[in-house]
Design a protein around this nucleic acid. Structure first.
Lengths: 193, 193
DNA sequence: AAAAAGCGTTGACAAATATCAACGCTTTTT
DNA sequence: AAAAAGCGTTGATATTTGTCAACGCTTTTT
């Protein structure tokens, strides 16, 4: 179970983990299973955990005053999941995070995670790499939403995240793109020709 | 000139900088003046510098195939400016960054900046804090763009960035929000009633 | 001092997208 | 086996936002 995580960390750093470091990581991350639809985090709660997805698919979304869900993020295997805003600021979250499929996670508390970053230099490097990727992805997505039409955004999405198309239904992807499921349906119909 | 930067760093960390650390920072950051409209970075160039704005205002934007500019970010005093994607990945930038007002910067190369993060723990802490804030702000902005109407987004913007309203003309703010200047003009007209 | 450029506004109209309701199909629950 | 829920699609229509052109005002450039 932890092998996936250790391999992931080694893949994303230059110097491999020592035995001791591996042991520390294994001791810190606990397996957790979530059934489909089960919450990892609910709006109003403070996010205390960070999860690494070993198997499954999850989503993060806000719910507006009309009860409509807006997908802020989608997650699959080898993604880190948590609400950074809540975890860092220790404030109640604006978001829900739940399992879209039955999911296997490795979770650690935010505090333990920070500990690891200090104690294990590879781990710190890896998280900085993830931070960078995350920042870059956010920037691109933002740029795309303010610059492009829905059609172009969907096109970019399928290019950048072909895996997601397989795993999530269209109405979630529409929400992720900031459009309705009907509009996405029509865009796809157009594109087929 | 460097005082502003040193004060800023001390404000954002717990343990104050030592004399030696201050000296190292001063030696690393070079003053740079940009006249209004002068580029800090152009599309296609690799971003080699990180800047700290001591005085002035800047903007980062992409230009689409029709020649329309889309404001990805606006910057004023005490903001860090750079294209992270280009700087980290060493790839040609998708963006332009230029001075909106005559601006005074303190700049360092990306490599020197990384050096400082390692050598000065307060500096590393400060950058991690900035990374966190940045990630949180991006998340919020993304959530706002996919969830809200233009009107609501403008409202949130004025709440979150009242300073920007004073410094940037409406058409830049409209672009930042992903709408046209005409639409923003009409939204404001409505809101006045 | 004159000319040009930048800015915000308005009107008329077009295009993009949302809303609402309904339907058929599949999967899940009972 | 039946009922319910989930999903994608379509049509009709409403709403939001964009486009284009014009105008007055201010600031900058010549």
């Amino acid at each position: 179970m932890h092998d996936t995580l250790l391999a992931y960390i080694n893949q994303h750093t230059t110097s491999p983990l020592t035995r001791e470091e591996e042991a520390l990581i294994i001791a810190t991350f606990h397996p957790k299973k979530l059934r489909k639809k089960q919450y990892f985090l609910q709006e109003g709660d403070v996010c205390k955990y960070v999860g690494f997805i070993v198997k499954g698919a999850m989503r993060q979304y806000s719910v507006d005053d009309k009860g409509v869900e807006h997908m802020v993020q989608l997650y699959i295997e080898n993604w880190w999941v948590s609400d950074r805003e809540s975890a860092v600021m220790l404030t109640p979250s604006r978001y829900y995070i739940d399992a879209w499929e039955d999911t296997e996670l490795l979770i650690a508390t935010v505090a333990d995670m920070m500990d690891l970053m200090e104690k294990i230099s590879s781990f710190g490097k890896m998280t900085r790499l993830m931070d960078n990727r995350n920042a870059i992805a956010s920037q691109r997505r933002l740029n795309s939403t303010i610059s492009n039409t829905a059609e172009k955004r969907y096109e970019e999405f399928t290019d950048n995240h072909p895996q997601f198309i397989q795993r999530f239904p269209q109405h979630l992807i529409a929400s992720f793109l900031g459009i309705t499921k009907e509009t996405l349906s029509r865009i796809r119909k157009q594109a087929m020709k």
